[in-house]
């Protein structure tokens, strides 16, 4: 019995679903950002796993790009969270309805 790449890809599916659960169920803006990180990492694991399956470097290149984009997203997302924290006491995503039509 060897570890085949489809185990890794299945694990990435499980992690992606857990991250999606966090985004949908949690109302703390910080935890929503953390859950998005889990989803990005799950996608990375799938990319890396498929890169291994095909023996090509393309998947790893994409994984590193995803890391760069995730770092940018964290900087901007946390900046928005900190800016919002000056305006309101709770960081509740259900209360952020300023753009609601």
């Amino acid at each position: 019995m060897t570890v085949s790449p489809e185990w890794f890809v299945a694990l990435s599916g499980v992690l992606f679903a857990i991250g999606a659960a966090g985004v949908l169920l949690r109302r703390n803006a910080l935890v929503v950002l953390l859950s998005i990180e889990i989803m990005l990492n799950a996608a990375n694991l799938a990319l890396v796993g498929f890169s291994r399956v095909h023996g090509a470097h393309d998947g790893q290149v994409f994984a590193i790009m995803v890391m760069a984009i995730a770092a940018s997203e964290v900087v901007v997302g946390l900046g928005i969270v900190v800016a919002l924290s000056h305006l309101r006491r709770e960081l509740d995503t259900d209360d952020m309805t300023e753009l609601h039509g």
């Binding site: 299945a10 599916g13 499980v14 992606f16 679903a17 857990i18 999606a20 949908l24 169920l25």
Partner: peptide, 16 residues
Amino acid sequence: ALLTVLGLGGILVGVI
């Protein structure tokens, strides 16, 4: 939300 997530996870893992 819970149903959506369980469905998504089930479909992903099932397909893989």
